[in-house]
Design a protein around this nucleic acid. Structure first.
Lengths: 208, 208
DNA sequence: GCAATAATCTAACAATCGTTCGAATGGTAA
DNA sequence: TTACCATTCGAACGATTGTTAGATTATTGC
């Protein structure tokens, strides 16, 4: 009944599986769901199209794996880094760490996270739902972070933290569309993003 | 030689053309480029698939028209509203108008702008280039806006306005992914976005 | 009302899609 | 080596794709 045990497989299988996923993520990122062909994935992975079905049951299963990996990479990175902070860490410091980690994870696992972000909307609803719990957990994480900060007066209480969260994460997520790793280190972007988020762009002397 | 004159067409042609474009934009927005089928577009538009070719030469030509319309709607709206401002308008006020107008245009032409934003990356390079001049012009518009503000001291001069622009526009563009017109008026979002952009989230008394 | 042409329909085409399956290969334990 | 199972190949399938062309219907100008 409980069919948790996978068919016993050798070491080479996992390697191929990984190559297929990498290829799929790379193609999903630039061409979207509908344009990504199993034959193209196979070619990039260095195998034949039919061979994919030894590792995955369907195209959707591949997409699902890529999507899930994309969100998990960011969520787990941020969650773990926050958990590793000393308990006396201030709210603003925690937010700064979250922003920086989010950006680092987002841009270092570029293909998976980009594919996840850009493809999520165009994938059949049926298996959007599989990665949805993770996405919601990540939203809750941020909402708690911002809510706690506001409750303690670290964030102005005339702001809607829910709106603030979507605006902030939107700004960060959009970086996958333009970020060029050869141009500028991720930390520079994170630093200025946090700086503007905290203090705004207007110089203090004339902040009306 | 100069074949500028289109084949003389009646009034009904333009109506159908519009319906095809509307249908295409709506499908592009939710399903992406590769998943959007000419037969599906035709069904939404209330005609037969083959009839599309009376109005457009190819699928790509439809996509091209949708993409261009999407960026043009936002660009022209912001440009015109800025041009209509009295010349003595301050830099921050101009930026506020630009942000608000950008959001309003973005979200009121939802299908076209969303399709334009989400599909641009997955479309063949050959005709990404057709809407590229418009996109660049829009970037220049914002860059001038922010650069002039910084030159006059309205924006802190330790900020990189080029990075600031991408972060800001990213935040605004991302709204097409989550905005629900039944929940909150666009102006509320614009107001808080400008507020945070100018003054940051940290209360003045403890801004270090 | 009649001719002309604008607009749409219908049916098919070649290509490509995801998928299947039996045969061929690879490696590993005995 | 032999036998067994893991892994891949190669070729095919039905369905669907963008596109085409001729027949058919609407609409307009006179």
């Amino acid at each position: 009944m409980n069919d948790t045990s996978p068919p016993r497989r050798g070491r080479k299988s996992e390697l191929s599986r990984e190559q297929i996923l990498d290829a799929a993520a790379r193609m999903l990122r630039r061409q979207g769901y509908g344009n990504t062909t199993l034959r193209a994935i196979a070619e990039v992975a260095g195998i034949q199209a039919g061979s994919i079905y030894y590792h995955f049951a369907s195209k959707d299963e591949i997409m699902d794996a890529v999507l899930e990996r994309g969100v998990a990479a960011v969520y787990e990175a941020v969650r773990d880094r926050l958990a590793a902070l000393p308990s006396e860490t201030g709210h603003l410091a925690r937010i700064e760490v979250a922003v920086t980690t989010h950006l680092e994870a987002l841009l270092s696992h570029g293909d998976y996270t980009s594919a996840s972000i850009r493809t999520y909307g165009e994938v059949p609803e049926a298996f959007q739902q599989k990665s949805q719990p993770l996405r919601e957990a990540y939203v809750v994480l941020w909402q708690d972070l911002l809510g706690a900060a506001q409750a303690d007066g670290a964030i102005r209480d005339d702001l809607d933290t829910s709106l603030l969260r979507t605006l902030l994460l939107g700004s960060l997520n959009w970086t996958v569309e333009w970020y060029d790793p050869t141009q500028r280190p991720v930390q520079d972007i994170a630093r200025q993003a946090v700086d503007v988020l905290f203090r705004g762009v207007v110089p203090v002397e004339e902040a009306s």
